[in-house]
Nucleic acid binder design. Structure first.
Length: 419
RNA sequence: CGGGGUGUAGUGUAACGGCAGCACGAAUCGUUUGGGACGAUUUAAUCUGGGUUCGAAUCCCAGCACCCCGACCA
């Protein structure tokens, strides 16, 4: 992508009225734009990151047998009456009237759609288990959106639903999903600061497991077991807290943001929708369900919250909008020619590259924009580097740059493409 | 939804009830050219509606929007 053509503007000025670093950087670097409280546009840079996150999640969901589908956002109110969540969740539900008397719910989640849908495919124990997921917009009238992407009213969410014939099967799959979540967060670069955390089950069940990423911008308080590293959410912390896993009683208190959540819903939804199957013994039984969510935008915000410096964002390679940021100084024909060649070579190698070809910007402008945007590898081509038949390569996460001979670039390409 | 705060050029900010200013950005010209460079010229603003006043960005009322604290959640 030519930076001169990219739909974005960076700004030096701090964003007014922001309370988190990720909100400020993502706005200033041109990743997102706030439309209203808790509602954001994803600009080309931001959308690119979102799509990378989506890819990672999709891959891991498919690896554990998830089949992707797409459920409607617009849902009949009756289904929400059936589960009584029209009352239980009424504060966050966007309810709207159609032309006639018909009322609709803008989906805050999809149990009310996927459960009746499952009735069309589940008859026998032979039809179980199965797993379906989607990556789609959710709408929740949050009482108080905050911290940029960390709490919003409209957000992309991956929601996986599992259907089982018995508790053991549900329990096993629940752990399979937990493991997949661990892989996803690791791949997204927040593995070392993300903890599986015991929490309340909300309107679903008694307990659930959250995946909490440590950050000062987080609004949850969690207690991390110093021995086994499991987390416990403050909402269920009791007086004499003991780790449910290793019985240890020493904890570290941390602020964190919930990037994912897994629930065993049991018969919470199969009951109101009468979702049953015929078991081996010939008796009809209720299907057991699990649901598993990850908020993509929030995950994006959490990644920034845990990877930045004074100058800007430091994206992990796995989700960065581009892998290479090419800066061209000295707009001489010689430099331009070399830069354009590198640009094309990268594309040939399937390495995503943002090429700062802007001729009306000084070196300082370009350096600062590059630091703010946070692309993993920065390559500078100038008269100075060409004198050495070289380019200058610097990793965003590192202090020092190094000169690399143009003839040696193949090695660099290989390195960039790794994992 | 309860409590508090703030609304000024595209962005960030100033202005005692008395000429709406500064910085960034954008545009033109010239000088620069490896960490937001310099000079000149230009561009562009008081959320909406009422009220008080000789005079309102400033005070009062209402609305709207945004932000913060609290109760709820990926």
């Amino acid at each position: 992508m030519l930076q001169s053509k990219l739909f974005y503007k960076t700004t030096k000025n701090k964003t007014a009225g922001v309370d988190s670093i990720s909100h400020d950087f993502l706005t200033r670097a041109g990743y997102i734009d706030q439309l209203m409280a808790g509602v954001y546009s994803f600009l080309p840079l931001g959308f690119s990151v979102l799509k990378n996150i989506e890819k990672i999640i999709r891959k891991n969901m498919e690896e554990i047998g998830g089949q992707e589908l797409l459920l409607p956002v617009l849902q009949p109110k009756e289904n929400w009456v059936k589960t009584d969540r029209i009352n239980i969740e009424k504060e966050i539900i966007f309810l709207l009237k159609g032309n006639g008397y018909k009322e609709y719910v803008l989906g805050p989640t999809h149990e009310e759609v996927v459960t009746p849908l499952a009735k069309r495919v589940i008859f026998s124990y032979r039809d179980l288990p199965f797993y379906v997921f989607q990556i789609q917009d959710k709408l929740r009238d949050e009482l108080r959106p905050k911290s940029g992407l960390l709490r919003v009213r409209e957000f992309m969410m991956k929601d996986l639903y599992s259907f089982h014939a018995n508790q053991t099967d549900l329990d096993n799959y629940y752990e399979v999903v937990a493991k997949a979540y661990g892989k996803i967060f690791k791949k997204c670069g927040i593995g070392s600061v993300t903890y599986r955390t015991l929490a309340s089950g909300g309107s679903f069940s008694k307990y659930s497991d959250e995946f909490q990423t440590i950050t000062g911008a987080g609004e949850d308080l969690i207690y991390i077991c110093k021995k086994c590293g499991i987390g416990i959410n403050k909402e269920i912390k009791n007086e004499n807290l003991k780790c449910p896993k290793c019985n240890n009683s020493e904890f570290e208190e941390k602020k964190a943001v919930e990037v994912g959540n897994i629930f065993k819903m049991g018969t919470r939804f199969s009951l109101p929708f009468d979702l049953k199957f015929t078991d081996r013994d010939g008796h009809d039984k209720l299907v057991l369900m699990g649901c598993y969510g990850i908020g993509l935008g929030r995950l994006m915000g959490a990644i920034v919250e845990s990877s930045y410096d004074q100058k800007g964002i430091i994206w992990p390679k796995s989700v960065a909008p581009f892998l290479v940021h090419l800066l061209q100084f000295d707009n001489t024909p010689k430099v331009k020619k070399a830069a354009q060649k590198l640009y094309k070579d990268c594309q040939k190698e399937d390495i995503t590259i943002l090429y700062d070809d802007r001729e009306n910007k000084t070196a300082g402008d370009k350096f600062n924009d590059a630091d703010l945007i946070g692309i993993p590898y920065r390559i500078v081509i100038s008269e100075k580097t060409l004198k050495e038949n070289s380019v200058e390569i610097k990793e965003r996460s590192k202090e020092k740059a190094k000169l690399v001979k143009i003839t040696q670039l193949q090695k660099f390409f290989k390195n960039v493409k790794k994992n």
